[in-house]
Design a protein around this nucleic acid. Structure first.
Lengths: 242, 242
DNA sequence: CGCCCGGTTGATCATTTTCAAGCACGGTGG
DNA sequence: CCACCGTGCTTGAAAATGATCAACCGGGCG
């Protein structure tokens, strides 16, 4: 199912990786990044629909996305599921569940995806000779906490319209940071998945997309979106403001 | 405003602290815990209503609660606020904002509270001679991520009734772990604060409490709660289940 | 003693969900 | 090549959940 890709060429190195300052090395000095070139010994290919890991799986690594898109999600005993995040290249997944050394969620590919395997052991070992690596991992985990808390605001105090506007803006910004168009992109997830992420039903998501389109804010055809009026979309976000 | 308490007596030590296995040392060996006895050099008293830190404050420490209750909350530009957590003795706050080394939220005391100051520098330094400390901090941060994700499920896919039932159960379990009664306790937060945390309005919280009481699940008088029918409350949680 | 804040309760309203029907695109097989 | 099927999406109407507005209560404190 999962396709391991043994590595021996230069392309494996963080110091020469094109994702560079979007990924693990974000904010680190060039020297320090070179020292972590041995950190990633393995890459894994995950096909669309397959899982990189599942809730309860032993956790021995975190994963940096090279290309593709992942969703992380939790399913409750009663079958209800919540998507906790959509993840783009350069983002690191798997920080949950370090407490029990077992994954606390599932990670599933929304399209064919490749990740760098960052073994937890290696992190621990390498940190001894590269103290900034330890700091780096704490920063990455901290960022995840901050992002989750932003999401709590979204789900706790925003209306459907604001949530979807925020979703589009966030996606636009993240794609833009990766060199893609900020105004025109393909949604890799279904209406239902967007709904799960935003705490809405798929019909509500669909209706809102139609409404945004009718208002001239976006153009949408299937999963292809074009953000026509960014300012207008941004205004939706702070609409209930004083 | 904040009351620093310089330390020199035994009571400062993690190895002899009564919160022991609820707090920083959770899961660590006795030897390792002794080695971290120098970690906490300072304690701080925060009076009811005062803030331990505020959004944007330089972050140079995380804080372990000795006694009292804190809320962590984020306020948006437009004034809307979201409470992201209520924190009991033994819990560690301040892990957000490590990315920018500035706090990404506010922490405010709901009653007079005392915290142990754990300087980030000290963590870094001590980790060199005590590798398990590094692992420990990652575990604590990971736990925070997992908890936030549980909260995302709550806000994203639960109904008001389920949210409040879950809140009561969670509080009961955490108080119980600290040696308090699991069935009878005092809410340190207002209806409005509960509402903010659960993504509900204060009136809804109030109504639900009344409804729970009428159904014989709880007794409530002001902020004093008694959980009468734990099983019944638990059933509310999985109600919409299949 | 009286005020004030926090809480309760009721009536009404808005938003989102639910249920239901139908559409469009992509793939499959005759 | 086209008819057929299924999945994902759209749209409408009705229902439900929670929000809002408003009045009132009551305990604690100056």
């Amino acid at each position: 199912m999962l396709n391991a890709i043994p590595l021996n060429d230069q392309s494996t190195r963080c110091s020469t990786c094109s994702l560079g300052q979007l990924c693990l090395p974000i904010g680190m000095s060039a020297q320090d990044v070179e020292k972590m070139d041995t950190l990633v010994q393995e890459r894994v290919r995950v096909r669309k629909g397959e899982s990189l890991y599942r809730l309860g799986d032993p956790l021995d690594a975190v994963y940096a996305i090279r290309f593709g898109t992942l969703k992380t999600h939790v399913t409750m005993e009663d079958g209800r599921a919540q998507i906790t995040g959509f993840h783009l290249p350069g983002e690191v997944v798997g920080f949950d569940g370090l407490t029990e050394m077992r994954h606390a969620s599932d990670a599933t590919a929304l399209e064919d995806t490749e990740v760098c395997v960052v073994r937890y052991n290696e992190i621990q070992t390498l940190s001894a000779s590269l103290p900034s690596l330890q700091h780096q991992f704490m920063r990455l985990m901290s960022r995840e906490i901050t992002q989750d808390q932003m999401m709590l605001i979204t789900l706790g105090s925003m209306r459907a319209e604001e949530r979807l506007a925020g979703f589009l803006i966030s996606l636009s910004e993240r794609l833009s940071a990766r060199g893609y168009s900020p105004s025109e992109f393909v949604l890799r997830m279904s209406r239902e998945e967007i709904g799960s992420y935003l705490g809405l039903k798929l019909e509500t998501v669909s209706r809102l997309f139609s409404r945004f389109a009718e208002a001239g804010l976006i153009q949408i055809r299937q999963r292809h979106v074009k953000l026509v009026d960014m300012d207008g979309i941004r205004q939706l976000l702070g609409k209930t403001a004083c």
